[in-house]
Every structure is written in C-alpha cells, then in structure tokens.
Simulated assay, not measured.
Amino acid sequence: MNVFTPTDEAPLVTIPGEWNFGYHYFAGEMASRFFHELRNKRIVGSICPSCRRVLVPARGFCDACFVAATELREVGLHGTVETFTILTEPFPKLPEPPLVVGLVLLDGADSAVLNAITGVDLDDLDAAAKLLLSGPRVRVEFRDECEGRITDFHFVLDES
C-alpha cells in the first residue's frame, strides 16, 4: 500500500447532482403518535424501557439498546443547540438563505431533534457561528395551525 501526501496542485472537485423523487414515509406507531401530538402543540419522545432514555422525535426502538419503545413522555419546549449548519444556498420549500438548521436537545429529552433556528443575526456569519457554537438556549415556536408535520414548529433563539 502506497502512502502519499496530498499537494496543493490538485484542483478542488465539484460533482453536480440533483435529487428529485417522490416518496411516502411510513412513520410507524411511535413516530405517528409524535406527529399527531404536534397537532396539539406538544412534543413527545418515546421512552426506552431498558435504559429509560427519552428519544425525540419518538421512535419505535432505542438506538442504543435496540429495545422496542412502548411509552411516550412529553418533553419541554426549551432546549440547547447541540450542533448546527448555516445554509447559504437555496433549497426547495425552505426560506431564502441564509438559514440556520440545528439539532436541539429539548429539556427532558436524551436525543436531539433537527429543525430551523430563527432569531440569529446572520448579517455576520462568523459571529453567528460563534454564538451558535456556544450552545445557546432556544424555545419552540409552533405555527398557528398545526398539521402534524415537523414543519409545525421551529426553534427561536431564547434571549431571556
């Protein structure tokens, strides 16, 4: 096996692609209950009967123990940003960039949920990244009319 060191002479590669396909997502029993509760402006997680972790979004089995989950628990509507990305390119059906999307650990949950984060000043992307790297607190903000979809809510930077 040859060992080599990359050089600066190699041009950067860009590979064009396009995703455009229809699909039907089968949520299963626990995730279906998660989406149903969103209509009531509640966020629930499934409880692992073995390790007692609360998994949000609710899912049918624990990803650590591989044990089927059978109970749900409501979690808090405040949480902490665990990781994020700042989108600078447009995506279909998303707001115009720049846009923050992040994984947030909600109070009472043991796994993070992905959604948009608003309330971050994106005029200076470096400053925004530093703020988000500090793990700020956020709160859930629901839409006026919830349909039982992940887009029924987003996170807002909690300035309190």
Rank of each mutant, 00 (worst) to 15 (best):
G135K: 05
A128I: 13
D107H: 06
R52T: 09
F61D: 02
F142H: 08
N2L: 14
G28P: 04
P90G: 12
D124I: 10
V75K: 06
E82C: 09
V104L: 04
L132H: 09
T88G: 12
W19Q: 14
V101T: 09
G60S: 12
D63P: 03
E145Q: 08
V156P: 00
F153S: 07
K93D: 14
F4R: 15
E18A: 15
T7P: 08
V113T: 11
R33K: 13
A69L: 04
F35R: 13
C48Y: 01
M1F: 07
L114F: 14
L106F: 02
R139L: 05
L114T: 12
V104M: 07
P11C: 10
D144Q: 13
F34I: 02
I47T: 02
A116I: 14
G79A: 06
P90H: 09
L131E: 15
P6D: 07
A27L: 11
F26R: 06
V67R: 06
E141D: 14
I117W: 00
D123Y: 09
F153V: 07
F91V: 15
G76F: 09
R33C: 03
D126S: 13
P57E: 05
L99H: 06
A64P: 00
P92A: 13
R73N: 04
C65A: 02
F4Y: 11
L55D: 03
I47V: 15
T118A: 06
F155V: 00
C146V: 08
F91I: 15
P92K: 15
G108K: 06
G148H: 06
F91T: 14
S46L: 02
E147S: 12
L131G: 12
P90M: 07
D152Y: 02
V81F: 04
A109N: 07
D123G: 15
F26G: 07
L132F: 10
L77E: 08
E159N: 10
L132S: 07
F26P: 01
A64M: 10
A64R: 13
A128Q: 10
G79Y: 01
G76W: 05
N40G: 06
E159A: 09
N20E: 08
F142N: 05
T7G: 15
C51D: 07
T80Q: 15
D121H: 09
G60V: 01
P136M: 11
V3D: 10
G135D: 10
F91K: 14
G28H: 07
D63I: 08
G79L: 03
L12F: 09
G22M: 09
G102R: 02
D126H: 15
S134A: 15
F84D: 05
V81Y: 04
N40K: 15
C65K: 01
H36V: 03
G17S: 07
V120R: 00
Y25H: 15
L77D: 03
N40C: 01
I117V: 12
R53G: 01
V56G: 05
V100T: 11
W19S: 12
F155T: 00
F84Q: 05
D152S: 08
N115R: 03
A127M: 08
L55P: 00
F26Y: 12
